[in-house]
């Protein structure tokens, strides 16, 4: 026997997660178009690994297997890992990444809803620290032949023909290690990695993620706070520095349309479990990620900073939430908000 309310809105964790997967599809389609089908292999690999690891952990923890396995949360983690790892990474890199996410970052912390860190970003951070070179081998844009890509994933690797530095990586390497005369404009003009506004090809993938993000907003699965605060912070700070020293700092469009910015804005920063939940807290949280991302990109040793930025802000999330509690009914004017 249960108590009121006796009526429930048809809603489920599974439906939320499935819509998140659906929202990833436009970005994935652009990805396949420009970089070949390897990413689909990685998605499949990550999905199977994630479901097996999830099932094993649920069994070990004595949880109802089908209830939680069917919630789709492991699939979301798996897809995000597959989309943030290089598509031609060797198969075991993805498998270890997924295991780290599902076994350690998720279940050892208590499973669905209990993890303080974003599992996909734990996987990314772990692997880029452990295997920096493998995590930096990205397919060349336009080189979509499936056989050599498949070979790169499962077979003996002959990578030179098909890899190319990512735009962020190319820019950082040029600015930091080559002759001191290198400028942003020079690098962007000289390399085939760069497109009209971001990285060549990548800008379209980013547009796909943006489209998916709009769908999530329309479905009210995410709110505007986090994507807006993250992207605006990145835009303002990169814009300010590019205006101040255009030779050494890339502009906003480059930052917003390369690397994981769009994927991060709508799919990673917005993870409800490990992020902030209050409206004001969301703004602080996502702005913090934007700021840290830019700092790591501009001054750090790693090509992209979103993973580390997210993990750092995950630590701060409970504190931010605690200090941004919205005023409750009848107490609004005392705290200074409009009544």
């Amino acid at each position: 026997m249960h108590n009121s309310p006796y009526f429930l809105k048809p809603a489920s964790v599974r439906s939320v997660m499935l819509r998140v997967l659906l929202a990833l599809l436009p970005g994935i389609a652009a990805y396949v178009w420009f970089f070949g089908a390897a990413v689909l292999v990685q998605i499949a690999l990550a999905s199977v690994t994630a479901l097996l690891a999830e099932a094993a952990m649920l069994k070990l923890r004595g949880k109802p297997l089908m209830l939680y396995l069917g919630d789709g949360s492991a699939l979301v983690t798996a897809w995000l890992i597959a989309l943030t790892f290089p598509p031609i990474a060797p198969w075991w890199l993805t498998v270890i990444g997924v295991l780290a996410a599902i076994v350690v970052a998720k279940h050892l912390y208590g499973g669905l809803g209990q993890n303080p860190f974003n599992p996909a970003m734990v996987a990314f951070a772990l692997m880029i620290v452990a295997y920096p070179s493998l995590m930096s081998q990205w397919p060349a844009v336009g080189f979509t032949d499936f056989a050599p890509q498949l070979n790169a994933i499962f077979g003996p690797r002959q990578l030179d023909a098909i890899t190319m530095a990512t735009p962020l990586d190319a820019l950082r390497t040029a600015l930091h290690t080559e002759e001191a005369r290198a400028t942003v404009a020079g690098v962007l003009g000289s390399s085939a990695s760069f497109g009209n506004i971001g990285g060549k090809g990548w800008e379209w993938v980013a547009a796909g993620y943006f489209l998916g993000g709009l769908y999530l907003l329309q479905q009210r699965i995410i709110t505007w706070h986090m994507p807006a605060a993250f992207l605006l912070t990145l835009l303002v700070i990169s814009g300010a520095f590019a205006a101040f020293d255009p030779g050494h700092f890339a502009g906003p469009s480059f930052h917003l349309f390369t690397g994981g910015a769009m994927l991060g804005a709508f799919f990673i920063v917005t993870d409800p479990v490990s992020g902030c939940t209050t409206p004001r807290g969301k703004l602080f949280f996502a702005a913090g990620i934007g700021l840290l991302t830019w700092i790591i990109r501009a001054f750090g040793a790693y090509p992209d900073g979103i993973a580390f930025a997210v993990l750092l802000m995950n630590i701060a999330a409970p504190l931010i939430d605690m200090n941004t509690q919205p005023p409750v009914f009848g107490h609004k004017d005392k705290r200074g908000s409009a009544k």
């Binding site: 489920s12 939320v16 005023p327 409750v328």
Partner: peptide, 25 residues
């Protein structure tokens, strides 16, 4: 009034906070 489906873990999605008429979390 079907019996509710099994209870799962909270994913902190914040739907409850969005609909609370007392502005609670």
């Amino acid at each position: 009034f079907p019996p509710p489906p099994p209870e799962m873990s909270c994913i902190r999605c914040g739907e409850c906070a969005k609909v609370c008429p007392s502005d609670l979390q």
